[in-house]
């Protein structure tokens, strides 16, 4: 009897907490429950999206629909296909850049918010910054290897770190998006 009563109590407890748990799963965006996040305009207007399209969004990297960090762009994955199924080489659309923004802020919104609000002080486990450094540059494992260096002289790092710490320089992002032969 005692065991049965205990089981009933556990079930009742679970039922009582279920609505509360479900309610706390609702996600709010931008200045919602994660605190402040960098906005879409800062991502697009300062060429952060452009930089990520060129440097991260290759079809053999983050230009793949199954990737959590999924980047669309002119030379990579397209959001919409051409009617004839041939390659669409037109410039990256606003819609694609909005999707890029959503993908980036949706990775680890809590960590991004902490980083943004602390002006780049809190980045200890923030994968958006740690992964592109790779283990080689004091980051974490990145299948694509170390693609950024945490230095003043790497415009890619300056672009990404600048954006997540509310201090982005559009010129650095543009420089980082150039591929030289």
């Amino acid at each position: 009897m005692r065991t049965r009563a205990r089981r009933l109590f556990v079930v009742a407890l679970a039922l009582a907490f279920a609505p509360a748990a479900a309610a706390s799963c609702s996600l709010r965006t931008e200045s919602g429950e994660f605190g402040d996040l960098p906005d879409r305009a800062s991502f697009v207007d300062n060429n952060v999206s452009l930089f990520m399209e060129v440097r991260c969004g290759g079809l053999d990297c983050h230009g793949q629909v199954g990737r959590p960090l999924r980047i669309y762009g002119q030379t990579g994955l397209r959001l919409k296909a051409r009617d004839d199924g041939l390659r669409d080489n037109s410039p990256t659309t606003d819609e694609e850049r909005t999707e890029n923004y959503r993908s980036v802020v949706g990775l680890e919104p809590e960590a991004l918010s902490e980083c943004f609000e602390s002006k780049g002080e809190k980045i200890a486990t923030f994968q958006l910054l740690k992964k592109p450094l790779g283990i080689e540059n004091d980051g974490i494992r990145h299948k694509g290897g170390p693609v950024l260096r945490p230095t003043q002289s790497d415009p890619g790092w300056q672009c990404l770190y600048g954006w997540v710490s509310d201090n982005v320089d559009a010129a650095e992002c543009e420089r980082a998006s150039k591929i030289t032969p």
């Binding site: 290759g58 079809l59 053999d60 994955l77």
Partner: peptide
């Protein structure tokens, strides 16, 4: 653009199709 890590060029550069199905048209995004 750059080749980042895929040694099969045709992995990304798939042959263009004359009369693609709806599924193949959707696949052409990648």
């Amino acid at each position: 653009s750059l080749i980042n890590r895929e040694g099969s060029c045709n992995f990304c550069h798939r042959p263009n199709l004359a009369d693609p199905t709806d599924e193949e048209i959707d696949d052409s995004r990648s």
